[in-house]
Structures are given as structure tokens and as C-alpha cells.
Amino acid sequence: MELFSTGQAAAPAGGDLIKDTTTQGFMADVVEASQQVPVLVDFWAPWCGPCKQLTPLLEKVVREAKGKVKLVKMNIDEHPAVAQQMGVQSIPAVFAFVDGRPVDGFMGALPESQLKQFIDRLAGPDGGAEDPEAQALEMADAALEAGDLQQAAAAYGAVLQANRENLAALGGLAKTLVRAGELDRARQTLDTVPADKQGDAAIASARAELDLAEQAASLGDLSELANRIEANPEDHEARFELALALNAHGDRGDAVNHLIEIVRRDRAWNDDGARKQLLQFFEAWGPKDPATLSGRRKLSSVLFS
């Protein structure tokens, strides 16, 4: 049976703006309906406590939007196929469809103010979404940087449901998995990228972050490394490992400082290893990251002083 097969739609619940659907009705209620107006799909289950908090708020803000969006609810206990196809791993989960494709989404119960922002971002003040794929990526990137990994994963996943070749979303999803500690899944995600596209900036950045995480996983305790450096400031191996560990813990500034110190003391150590590691940091963090900008200035100061 086709997942999005046509069939009899479920009866409306709360007028034309809000209704329940089934696997058979999904094509008409969501895919086809979203050709006319953005459609939110609320995946829920009767046993889900947060769902009971989110759904009434969703219904309220959808009604207040006065036709800019529609809401379709799907009970995953009774109709699991669509949720499985979309990779829903926890509920509540909400996906926004535009022009027959999922373009945005979130997981978990959000407050009413954030739900209104979500709908405004999706529909826009004139009721029509502009470049929803770019908007979803922007939201996903913001969630990732804020540390909201569940929200980031949902948004990147929505983009990839619509466009499986979106390299920015693939790289973002891989980074999300790395930061969640799911390194094997991150590598599997990156391995799906064709060889001729591995050099894309988003993919290269994600792979660099994955490599750093795998390196950090094998390192010793931070305090032990710090003690080694205190006892012998020329212990470049300990300082190098401490820099990797600090980066893994989110302390980018100190990680840069330790590598800069190695370069200052012994540029040739480990075949210029400290400078090369800094460059890998910069690639992983991205060219506009404050730590990248600061690190490049510090490195230039040491190299050309």
C-alpha cells in the first residue's frame, strides 16, 4: 500500500481549519491541501501528556490565524505509517507542509508565543510562505547553535523530507547527531553524500566536527592533562590533547589558546600539527564563528610576528 495513497479523508474536527486524518486520507488532507495553504501536521497519541498540552494551543493559534494555515492531527497509535516514514521518534511532533512537501517542524510542547512565531514564519503576514526551505534551515541552524538538538533534528529532517539532496541540511543533521553523542549515525549520514559533493562547505564542516568528536572520545581526563602541562609546560602532546578535550566541552577559546601556545613554543612539533589542528577547528566552527575569527587573528600574530 502506498503511504500517501488517496482515499476518504477523516471528518473535520473544528471546521475546515482543523481536522483529524488517517493514513489513507493523508494525501488529500495534507499533501494536496498544502498546495493551497500551509498545513501543520500534529503527530500525537492518547497516552502522551505533552500532546494534551500542545494540541489545544495549536488549535487556538490556528483559529486565530484565520485561514493562513490549517491543522491536521494524526493519532500515531492508530495510524503509525506516516510518522514512521517521516522519522518521528518522539511526540508531540509537528511538521509544516507547503506545496506538498514538509518544510519545517518541531518536537515537544511549545508555549503559545512560540507557536504564533512558528505560524508567522511559515505563512508570513500576507498568508504566503516565502522560500520555506531556507526558513526551515535558518530555524534549524538557530536551534542547533542554541543547543536545542531535538528541535534542530526535526527542522533539518523536515527539509530533507522535501529535498534529500540539500547539503546544508545533511551537514546540519550530522552536526546535530555529533552533539547528541550519536557519532556512528552522524558518520552514516555523511556517508550518504556523493563523493563529488564531499567538498561542500556544510559537509566538510560537519565531517571536521565529527572527526574532532571521535578524537576527543579517546582522550584522558582534563584535570590529568592540565596537571601534566603544569608539571612540564613543554609537554606538547598533553597540551594538544587538552585543546581537543576543551573543544569537545565547548570551550573554544581555551582550546585555541593551547594550540597557539604550542605553535609559539615549537612550530615544527608533530609536523606542524598544532597549526593544522587549528585549521580543522576553524573549518568545523565555520568562517563567521567568533572563535574562528579570534583564532585566526591570534595565529597570524604568532606566525608573522
Rank of each mutant, 00 (worst) to 15 (best):
121 R>Y: 01
123 A>G: 11
122 L>E: 10
93 A>L: 02
118 F>Y: 12
90 S>E: 06
120 D>W: 01
88 V>Q: 06
131 D>T: 09
132 P>L: 14
127 G>W: 05
132 P>C: 14
127 G>P: 07
117 Q>I: 10
109 A>I: 09
95 F>E: 06
98 V>L: 02
109 A>T: 00
98 V>P: 00
97 F>S: 00
120 D>Y: 02
110 L>A: 10
117 Q>K: 12
130 E>T: 11
90 S>H: 01
102 P>Y: 05
116 K>L: 03
98 V>M: 02
84 Q>H: 02
108 G>K: 02
122 L>I: 07
115 L>P: 01
85 Q>F: 13
131 D>C: 12
113 S>M: 03
106 F>E: 10
130 E>H: 14
104 D>G: 10
118 F>I: 13
119 I>Y: 01
108 G>W: 00
132 P>T: 12
87 G>K: 07
85 Q>D: 11
93 A>C: 08
93 A>E: 09
111 P>A: 05
97 F>H: 05
96 A>T: 11
89 Q>E: 11
105 G>K: 09
88 V>C: 08
117 Q>S: 13
130 E>Y: 06
126 D>Q: 14
117 Q>G: 08
128 G>M: 12
126 D>M: 12
107 M>K: 08
105 G>R: 07
126 D>N: 15
112 E>S: 09
132 P>E: 13
122 L>D: 07
110 L>S: 05
99 D>P: 03
130 E>Q: 15
131 D>N: 15
84 Q>T: 13
87 G>S: 00
94 V>W: 01
109 A>Y: 00
88 V>Y: 04
126 D>R: 14
120 D>T: 02
87 G>H: 06
118 F>L: 08
115 L>F: 02
93 A>T: 14
123 A>E: 03
86 M>P: 06
106 F>C: 13
133 E>F: 13
131 D>Y: 13
93 A>F: 01
89 Q>R: 13
100 G>V: 11
115 L>G: 06
120 D>H: 06
128 G>A: 10
110 L>N: 00
113 S>P: 10
106 F>Y: 15
125 P>V: 03
113 S>E: 15
127 G>N: 11
127 G>S: 08
92 P>S: 12
116 K>Q: 13
129 A>M: 04
132 P>F: 13
115 L>M: 10
117 Q>Y: 07
95 F>N: 10
87 G>Q: 08
86 M>W: 12
118 F>Q: 11
95 F>H: 15
90 S>Y: 03
111 P>C: 09
114 Q>K: 14
87 G>C: 09
109 A>H: 04
114 Q>Y: 11
92 P>Q: 12
119 I>N: 04
128 G>E: 14
112 E>H: 04
85 Q>P: 07
103 V>R: 07
121 R>Q: 11
